[in-house]
Design a protein around this nucleic acid. Structure first.
Lengths: 126, 126
DNA sequence: CTCTTATTGCAATTAAGTTGCAAAAGTAAA
DNA sequence: TTTACTTTTGCAACTTAATTGCAATAAGAG
């Protein structure tokens, strides 16, 4: 695995993720960081941070790639699996701190699982 | 809901899905049907068939949209949810005839859930 | 400081998915 | 089967997420 330097760009990106406190799509991140860095850089840093295990990604229902930072994320704990929730109205997307029981499937070797729940969040319900 | 006519194109597409016997990505479908119809038509027919409930779709880990036909699919039974398995080596993707327990999340209204399992299929394991 | 390696910006490219519009095909009623 | 109307299709152009090549810059080790 390539060495990931904690450059200024990396720090800025992680800070934006932390401030957001929820999952962000790559498109959203590119927009938020438009003044700070090039979009190619955003894509590349996200790749590296995911390799390192500092972020994890999943495919949104919108076809976009989403990234999130969570407590469980680390290089060792990479296969860890938790569901995500995406509000169909406001788009807010969060990691759910829940254990998911992965169904047993005979004759295959499961390497990863991703569970995406969609619906209406608390704020959009009221 | 618009009326979906069983045109020749619709029939051909459904036949290809049936022959495949597994989930197919839109890109794959467009290629397989290249001689028979335009790619725009493939996209539009898939949309309509999903509305009608004859097919269901999900986002693959590759970022592509995948479609599958299954026994459970019908207009009435639209919110039905089952997991999919995608082999990382050969790409074979199938519906798993399993019930999935959707975790209870407080204060939100879950409308849909999609569970994608990835790993190695029986053939690629041996 | 100097050498080496990793990172970044920029422009161009690839590829998935969408849109507008005119032509063709299907449906129903006379 | 002719006519009138609606849905479907093909085609070309377009939008946009994601990738690539290359030169320039920044970081780290000695």
């Amino acid at each position: 695995m390539a060495i990931v330097r904690k450059t200024k760009s990396v720090h800025t990106l992680l800070e934006v993720m932390k401030q957001a406190g929820e999952a962000l799509s790559v498109v959203d991140l590119v927009n938020r960081l438009d003044q700070e860095m090039n979009k190619t850089t955003v894509y590349r840093i996200l790749d590296r941070l995911e390799d390192e295990g500092l972020l994890h990604s999943f495919q949104g229902k919108d076809g976009l790639k989403w990234y999130a930072q969570c407590q469980d994320c680390s290089t060792e704990h990479h296969t860890d699996m938790h569901p995500h929730f995406q509000c169909v109205q406001c788009g807010k997307t969060t990691c759910l701190p829940l254990e998911v029981t992965i169904p047993k499937v005979p004759n295959v070797k499961i390497q990863s699982a991703s569970l995406l729940l969609t619906g209406l969040c608390e704020e959009c319900l009221t």
